[in-house]
Design a protein around this nucleic acid. Structure first.
Length: 466
DNA sequence: CGTTAGCCATTACGAACCCA
DNA sequence: TGGGTTCGTAATGGCTAACG
């Protein structure tokens, strides 16, 4: 019979150097450190493998013998099953460190590399920025420090419902983004996070209602609009008219460049189009004159090198709308530049333009078989439409007496009521004045800005130039 | 006062789904 | 299977306050 007690707390106390194995727990031993402190140690060969795993435990007696044995038993169940407990520990460490913030960081890397979704295209910069905004504003502050494996469906629902209190549509976008992030982390694409269950799976069920806009301008409203627009500076006339005549998106108009005009056709490059399809707009003579400029940008900003900021167009709209209400004598429902697209689209039927052309005019993609087999770009049809629409708008302008003021073709020429003067250094250091109007414009190309002179006297309403 | 950043709302593509 | 509809989400538009 073996000695009854070969391993006890008393024996550990008595131990001064070296180590002592626990005869009852394979792999477990206590060892004396140089400092004299005693530490638990686990060392055992992993079953069916050539490797020996060594793991250090806590100090004795802070970690009692019973605790150490329990600890070692757990490790033994792993080594005996052929699992290296060090690998388990590493995985646990990674797991404990996988916060929502870290997982999101990995997700964003995947986004930049185009690995985030099934989509083939890499997200556009604005989309990526929007993703970051949603995270930084709504997800990070609430969940960033949480372990992603411990986030529950309830956590996410709470987040979306809280958002819904102040911004319903945005709450839908938040839910969508949560689905994208957690869905990725739980998918084969996001194995680096390796979420087992996706807590966002059912978030789509709490969608808040959304509604589409229906606003379009009637012909009567267009009359007021054109009259009101006639009092704007020429640049604003040009921009707003271009939106109306081309049915382009505001960003397509505002950031248009001179080199996009090829043989009189405005070619919006794929990079600037919402759907990444190049869009050719063959405008009529009026539209072409509106885009006429010697500057790099069709609508150059005043104080920076670049196009005017979008917001100026909304301010212009505000001024125009206020004048329209004065002309009408009653309030007019607010409209936006995008509503011009709807306005143009809703006029196609009346002007006997077919569905296909109408869709092509808006650069909408073809669906189904049409898309597969019909690669025809409908350039001639679009050209006809833009001319027809331009003549329609011009006739409205003529009817209310602002055709000339707006520079519509066929009307008597006018320089408008205001213009920009660009002052550049000419020969011998003398200032050179360049008049920036639709009709007269110096060939001087300059980005230095300059004085804007607006004539204080506005002609009377209905005034017709001689 | 023009420009920008931040936040909320719409538009619209394309894959999934569904039905004859 | 083709063709319409729904669903998920990408890609914009729209508004306002802050900034310099």
């Amino acid at each position: 019979m073996a000695k009854k007690i070969t391993f006890s707390p008393a024996m550990i106390d008595a131990l001064c150097e070296g180590s002592l194995a626990d005869p009852l727990t394979p792999g477990l031993a206590i060892e004396v450190l140089k400092s004299g402190k005693k530490r638990w140690r686990y060392r055992r060969q992993v079953a069916r493998q050539k490797v020996v795993a060594t793991i250090f435990g806590g100090l004795f007696p802070a970690q009692s013998m019973a605790e150490a044995r329990e600890w070692a038993r757990e490790l033994n169940s792993q080594t005996e099953a052929g699992i290296d407990p060090r690998a388990v520990q590493r995985a646990e460490k990674v797991r404990n460190e996988m916060t929502v913030a870290k997982a999101h960081g990995l997700y964003m890397i995947a986004v930049h590399e185009g690995r985030s979704s099934r989509a083939k295209r890499i997200n556009k910069p604005r989309t990526i920025k929007d993703k970051m905004d949603v995270y930084n504003h709504d997800i990070g502050p609430a969940l960033g420090n949480r372990n992603i494996y411990e986030v529950t469906e309830r956590d996410l629902i709470k987040l979306v419902e809280a958002k819904g209190k102040t911004a319903k549509v945005r709450a839908n976008r938040l839910a969508a983004e949560l689905k994208v992030i957690f869905g990725w982390a739980a998918s084969l694409r996001g194995l680096e996070v390796g979420l087992e269950t996706d807590p966002s799976k059912r978030l789509g069920d709490l969608r808040f209602p959304e509604k589409a806009r229906t606003r379009k301008l009637s012909h009567l409203e267009l009359e007021w609009f054109l009259q009101a627009l006639a009092e704007e500076e020429r640049d604003f006339q040009r921009g707003m008219l271009l939106c109306l005549l081309s049915a382009a998106r505001i960003s397509e108009m505002a950031r248009a460049r001179s080199d996009e005009i090829v043989n009189g056709v405005w070619v919006i490059p794929s990079a600037r189009a919402k759907n990444s399809f190049e869009h050719k707009i063959a405008l009529g003579p009026w539209g072409r004159s509106l885009m006429q400029t010697n500057h790099e940008w069709i609508f150059p900003a005043l104080t920076i090198d670049g196009p005017r900021n979008n917001s100026v167009w909304y301010k212009c709209r505000d001024r125009v709308l206020a004048r329209m209400e004065k002309l009408a004598g009653h309030p007019i429902e607010r409209f936006t530049p995008h509503d011009f697209r709807r306005t143009a689209r809703s006029n196609t039927k009346r002007l006997k333009v077919d569905f296909e052309t109408a869709e092509a005019m808006l650069n909408h993609v073809k669906k189904g078989m049409e898309r597969t087999y019909d690669l025809y770009e409908m350039e001639d049809e679009k050209r006809n439409w833009f001319l027809k629409w331009e003549e329609e708008v011009a006739s409205i302008a003529k009817r209310v007496g602002v055709a000339a003021a707006l520079g519509a073709p066929g009307a008597q020429t006018s320089i408008g009521y205001s213009f920009t003067v660009r002052i550049t250094k000419g020969a011998g250091g003398r200032p050179s004045y360049n008049f920036d109007t639709a009709k007269s414009r110096s060939g001087e190309k300059s980005s230095q800005t300059n004085a804007r002179i607006t004539f204080p006297q506005m002609p009377e309403k209905g005034h017709r130039p001689d």
